[in-house]
Design a protein around this nucleic acid. Structure first.
Length: 554
DNA sequence: TTGCAGTCAATATC
DNA sequence: GATATTGACTGCAA
């Protein structure tokens, strides 16, 4: 029915949502496959009229199991669709060959030509791709990303790290030549990979590149060669440059940053990097705990009180939210792979503190629901606590500021911090209740009372940690939600998808351990939650059919 | 407008 | 010197 409708009444591209575009992209790919080497008009993901929204092609074509389910990922609903997407496999064929060949990236760059970032910048997002996939190959990377099966990002980064360290290869070299990213980004990526399902098309690219690189039997040698060449070039330059003032640039590797822009319009442009003082960070964190999504007014106040630019405060909140979210992902993954037991403690103090908390995205509902009261209570402690640090400088101020906002409703989501001690172990049960609630806006400032209880506030530094540690329990549920929301509580990073994925794609990516490796289903807690969810659903259905009032207690 | 994802690149730390 | 951290920026979506 859907197909018929789509074929007879296709909506214009611009009117389609990301999801809505998917079928068209699939059709395009399918058509291309039939036409042989058709080239998908991939314009770069950002603007790309085509690819951009294909965020969930992990299951390329589970047409078989169409969408009755909004979450096609649930393999349950769609049995491993035996090769269903035949068309997709077809279209991937050429790509497969491509990928199978010895990693082109290094190859090319090796011969001297660092991947030219200067190639037609036209292809916006990929201008500097270090994957000198010649000709059509260049496009392939995006196609590959689009058609890539669910990859085990955690596993991939783990392997990459191993290979790099085992062979004494640096992140910079690897990043610039293989991924087209800077060292910092690589470090971040390797240390905190996001689960596949949380990644955008663009975000998946590095992982696909890593996977391809891992598949390349000569990957290490190539990189080693690169390294040697760099060294040589560097030495050469060093010697020759002693005379000329040319500051030695980092051995040009994959990306030619040096020649990138106009030679030196930068001296004066450089603005000093802002470095927040510990107290300032402390204050911001405190403010965050009280209000992960501060209003402009609050931001303004924080800025004045801390003597920072508002943009700095805004950026800080953005970064903090986003980073905390990532910490959560990792914890989730780790918990999933090693039994939740140790998960909570392992995370760095930092992650512990923040992560849990919040991320709203994962736990929204919780505090929100039970929250107001608790939050306030805790709050009271806050101010006083604020004094905590160094004599109440900025921190105190910030803390003070926050309170007033409270009404504004800290977005439940961020809920952050540890679900206050109040309810020790909201646990699965509580967690479960969420589903029934209206679709928890994934993220988004919510206005509601729900001030996040902020234990941390009460107990400064140490307190925070304590809070953190306390958090785990409550946290669990939160995270789970994340997983839950995507069908059956299975973090994408988990195997299911991989399992049902058409072998062709698997081989394409050489997914030895693809997602499958860590099936979060092993996690007892998840099982429990899943069970709870089922029970809730069941009850809901029952209630719906008989319309009898029911008291919910999940 | 606001929030987020993904990055860069300056610094900090190891 | 390599890696980790983090403030800032860009582009996109809702």
């Amino acid at each position: 029915g859907s197909v018929s409708d789509m074929l007879s009444r296709p909506k214009p591209w611009s009117k389609l949502t990301q999801k809505g575009r998917e079928p068209f992209i699939r059709m395009q790919l399918w058509l291309n496959g039939e036409l042989g080497q058709g080239v998908l008009p991939v314009q770069g993901q950002q603007q790309g009229p085509v690819l951009h929204s294909m965020t969930s092609l992990q299951d390329p074509l589970q047409q078989g199991c169409v969408s009755s389910e909004s979450t096609p990922k649930t393999s349950a609903s769609c049995s491993p669709a035996p090769e269903s997407p035949m068309s997709s496999s077809e279209s991937v064929k050429s790509l497969t060959e491509l990928v199978q060949q010895p990693c082109p990236p290094i190859e090319t760059s090796k011969d001297g030509k660092p991947p030219e970032p200067s190639d037609p910048p036209a292809s916006d997002s990929q201008p500097t791709t270090p994957l000198p996939l010649s000709g059509h190959s260049a496009l392939s990377i995006q196609e590959l990303v689009a058609m890539s099966p669910e990859l085990d990002t955690y596993g991939i980064t783990k392997r990459v790290k191993e290979v790099l360290t085992d062979n004494n290869l640096g992140q910079r070299l690897f990043g610039e030549t293989i991924l087209g990213l800077t060292q910092g980004s690589v470090s971040d990526l390797l240390a905190r990979p996001k689960p596949w399902h949380k990644l955008s098309l663009k975000g998946r690219e590095p992982f696909v590149r890593m996977q391809l690189w891992l598949n390349d039997p000569n990957n290490v040698e190539k990189l080693m060669d690169m390294k040697r060449m760099e060294k040589k070039a560097y030495m050469k330059r060093r010697h020759s440059s002693v005379s000329d003032s040319q500051p030695c640039e980092p051995p040009s590797t994959g990306i030619d940053y040096s020649q990138g822009a106009s030679p030196q319009p930068q001296h004066q442009l450089k603005k000093p990097r802002v470095v927040l003082a510990p107290e300032e960070k402390e204050a911001l964190k405190r403010a965050y705990q009280q209000k992960p999504y501060p209003s402009p007014k609050t931001i303004e106040e924080l800025a004045t009180q801390l003597n920072l630019k508002t943009s700095t405060v805004i950026n800080w909140f953005h970064n903090y939210r986003s980073r905390i979210r990532r910490e959560l992902f990792i914890e989730e993954i780790q918990a999933g792979s090693q039994g939740q037991a140790g998960a909570s403690d392992s995370p760095s103090a930092r992650s512990g503190r923040a992560a849990p908390s919040s991320e709203g995205d994962s736990c929204d509902g919780v505090e929100a629901a039970e929250g107001p009261g608790a939050a306030d209570a805790e709050e009271s402690g806050g101010p006083g606590a604020a004094a905590k640090s160094q004599g109440g400088g900025p921190a105190e101020a910030a803390a003070a500021a926050a309170p007033e906002e409270r009404e504004e409703a800290p977005r439940p989501a961020e809920k952050a911090e540890p679900p206050p001690s109040g309810t020790p172990a909201p646990d699965a049960a509580t967690d479960e209740s969420r589903p029934q609630a209206p679709p928890p806006p994934p993220e988004g400032p919510a206005d509601g009372p729900g001030p996040v209880p902020n234990p941390a506030a009460a107990a400064p530094a140490a307190g925070e940690d304590a809070a953190t540690s306390a958090a785990p329990p409550g946290e669990g549920p939160c995270r789970a939600r994340d997983g839950a929301d995507r069908s059956s509580a299975l973090p994408s990073t988990s195997a299911p998808a991989a399992a049902r994925r058409p072998s062709s794609l698997q081989s394409l990516f050489g997914l030895p351990e693809a997602a499958g490796a860590r099936d979060s289903r092993d996690n007892p807690l998840r099982k429990k939650k899943a069970a709870n969810l089922n029970s809730i659903i069941h009850r809901l259905e029952k209630a719906a059919s008989r319309e009898e009032p029911i008291e919910w207690e999940f």
